[in-house]
């Protein structure tokens, strides 16, 4: 009897350990994020891609930014919520992105769907880049599922809760 009890206890322990291990992996996959700095809703992770990256940054980038360039080549700014309200960006809303010409050799704003790939639409407007701004001092871009009457446009059709 004691041996039976022990075997039963060990089986229970093994099941609990397996379940807890899987939960640990799943929760980490879902919630782990890299240390970042936030500027008006735009987040930046300075150690992206570098050998000096901490394990959390490396794990985050492996999931959502594999093959990212280091700060020597590029800086990635990411936004998934409205600047003023903090609400998640959604294809059900229209947004205005405006700013001044960025002090960079080249820049672009690209819309990615929730799965971190380009949104599944054939509108042909997944991004807006510096060559399209033609050196203007300011830029104004509409993010919307429907093409605006005028102006620069990034299509959010089928983007769900997208990020830019």
């Amino acid at each position: 009897m004691p041996r039976t009890n022990l075997i039963f206890s060990l089986i229970c322990a093994l099941l609990i350990a397996s379940l807890a291990f899987v939960i640990g992996v799943v929760l980490s996959f879902k919630f782990v994020s890299a240390p970042s700095i936030s500027i008006k809703g735009w987040r930046i992770s300075p150690l992206v891609g570098t050998i000096a990256a901490d394990p959390y940054t490396r794990a985050t980038i492996a999931k959502s930014g594999l093959l990212a360039l280091t700060r020597k080549e590029a800086i990635y700014l990411s936004a998934d919520s409205e600047t003023e309200t903090g609400a998640k960006l959604s294809e059900n809303c229209d947004y205005l992105v405006e700013g001044i010409e960025l002090p960079a050799r080249w820049w672009s704003i690209t819309l990615y769907a929730e799965d971190d790939y380009l949104a599944q639409n054939d509108d042909g407007h997944p991004s807006f880049d510096a060559t399209a701004s033609k050196g203007a001092a300011n830029y104004r871009i509409i993010i919307s599922p429907k093409k605006p009457v005028s102006g620069a446009w990034i299509s959010s059709k089928n983007g769900g809760n997208f990020r830019a």
């Binding site: 229970c12 379940l19 807890a20 640990g24």
Partner: peptide, 24 residues
């Protein structure tokens, strides 16, 4: 059982953190 669960959870977390870059 609680200790086993916590330790396994932690192992799962760190396994993901350190191994996921190689897996991806």
């Amino acid at each position: 059982y609680l200790i086993i669960a916590i330790v396994a959870l932690a192992i799962g977390h760190f396994a993901y953190i350190f191994l996921s870059p190689y897996v991806f």
